[in-house]
């Protein structure tokens, strides 16, 4: 028996998936800009990020409005309640991911100095890992796959390691190239932005597990509701 509420929930999920699509696109532009290491291509990608950002912000408000309406009018319980609570939180994480992509665009405007080579390669690899993690977390939500969501969480460690490696490399590099301090900071900020996107993807994967099982796996805990 399908309830009218099921149709509204499906519509809400689709709204969030649309929002996620914008954010994923924005993150992809940011990573492509880093990979291209070409000022012209980068500028084009950054412009695209700013355009998508407007859509992300609107979707952010639309999803929140829809959630508040469903909470007020349907007074959901159990799995319905968990899904809406998870969507509210995922919506917030997605919006922050979009903001981090915008930050990458801001931080990158003056960073396109192709050195040191190893760090720039590491940044590209890190960007790809972040994209994989974002894609994976969103797939888990779309497919209601709690097991895969738990596996996605492990990817965050690799992203954190990449950030630490880049920090360390830049520290060493800047000791011998202090004139490049601004470039160095920008690279560090970008690594930090990418790492934060990974953290938000982690939150989404955790919310997927909560929505499906009611289990709260945040902060290493297994306490449910």
């Amino acid at each position: 028996m399908e309830r009218h509420f099921d149709i509204e929930l499906r519509s809400l999920k689709n709204e969030l998936i649309k929002m996620a699509g914008f954010v994923e696109q924005s993150v992809a532009y940011a990573v492509e800009a880093i990979r291209a290491q070409d000022p012209n291509i980068a500028q084009t990608k950054f412009k695209q990020i700013f355009e998508v950002e407007r859509k992300v912000n609107q979707a952010h408000k639309d999803v929140d409005d829809a959630c508040v309406k469903l909470l007020a009018l349907q007074q959901p319980l159990a799995a319905d309640l968990r899904l809406i609570v998870a969507i509210i939180k995922m919506n917030s994480d997605l919006e922050r991911m979009g903001d981090q992509a915008v930050n990458i665009a801001h931080n990158s405007e003056r960073f396109l100095k192709l050195e040191p080579k190893q760090t720039m390669e590491d940044l590209v690899v890190m960007g790809d890992e972040v994209r994989t993690m974002v894609r994976g977390a969103l797939d888990c939500f779309i497919n209601r796959d709690g097991e895969m969501a738990r596996k996605i969480l492990a990817l965050d460690d690799s992203i954190d390691e990449a950030r630490n490696r880049i920090f360390s490399e830049m520290k060493t590099y800047l000791k011998t190239h202090p004139e490049n301090i601004e470039h160095g900071f920008n690279v560090i900020f970008i690594a930090r932005n990418l790492e934060r996107i990974g953290d938000h993807a982690t939150n989404i994967a955790e919310d997927v597990v909560f929505a499906i099982t009611g289990e709260d796996i945040r902060h290493g805990g297994s306490k449910g509701v």
């Binding site: 309830r3 959901p76 319980l77 159990a78 799995a79 968990r82 099982t213 009611g214 449910g224 509701v225």
Partner: peptide, 21 residues
């Protein structure tokens, strides 16, 4: 708080979410 957010039994879940029947 547990029963209305994460019930253990499928029948409870179906009843409290109005899917019963």
């Amino acid at each position: 708080s547990r029963l209305f957010t994460a019930p253990k039994q499928e029948q409870t879940e179906r009843y409290i979410t109005g899917r019963f029947g």
